[in-house]
């Protein structure tokens, strides 16, 4: 049995902010209407997590549940737990119309850390970082690819598609180059 590997083998870059590729991270896409009572119950039962409000990401221990659209959640959890949790969520949702599927290997995850981490994202995403609310999950693009990010302790987490992980790493490293800070110290 081979071990799963992340797209970039946890590559990192030290600039005016630190960029690290994380993972492998367990990720589950759960599609269901958010007003479905079975959904709230399933999240509570299987993950001990609340249903996030619109555009929010909530945490429950090691688990994060992010609002992706009115009928889609992204669940982040330890990679080893994915298979069991997919099964448990599917079971908990019962006959309700829902789709639960493992997307761990379809994505890549980055940490952008340091006091100036926001400046890295300001160069890539058409998003007002100053207006990003606490616990907000923002889906947008970074340069030419889709991405989602949110603030975490010490900086940001960013999720993108696996096939473009090297491109995203290139973007983040280019944007974190020492000397390219956007604001004076």
């Amino acid at each position: 049995m081979s071990e799963a590997v992340s797209a970039l083998g946890n590559a990192s870059f030290e600039g005016f902010a630190t960029v690290r590729e994380l993972g492998p991270m367990g990720m589950i896409t759960l599609r269901a209407r958010h007003d479905l009572p079975a959904l709230t119950k399933a999240l509570q039962k299987v993950l001990k997590a609340e249903l996030p409000e619109r555009r929010r990401i909530v945490s429950a221990g090691e688990v994060r549940v992010g609002w992706m659209s009115p009928d889609e959640l992204l669940i982040l959890l330890p990679h080893a737990d994915v298979t069991a949790r997919v099964a448990a969520l599917t079971k908990a949702l019962g006959t309700a119309h829902a789709l639960v599927t493992d997307v761990s290997d379809a994505r890549c995850l980055f940490a952008i850390e340091g006091e100036r981490a926001a400046e890295v994202l300001m160069k890539l995403a058409p998003v007002d970082l100053a207006a990003l609310e606490p616990g907000e999950l923002r889906r947008t693009r970074v340069a030419q690819v889709a991405a989602a990010f949110w603030a975490e302790e010490g900086g940001f987490r960013l999720v993108a598609f696996r096939s473009v992980a090297a491109y995203v790493m290139g973007l983040l490293a280019h944007s974190a180059q020492p000397g390219s800070e956007l604001f004076p110290a």
Binding site: T29, R31, T101, V103, S104, D105, A106
Partner: peptide, 11 residues
């Protein structure tokens, strides 16, 4: 009632 998920990169 139908949901889609693009799993191209999962596999």
């Amino acid at each position: 009632q139908g949901y889609t998920a693009n799993l191209t990169e999962q596999f």
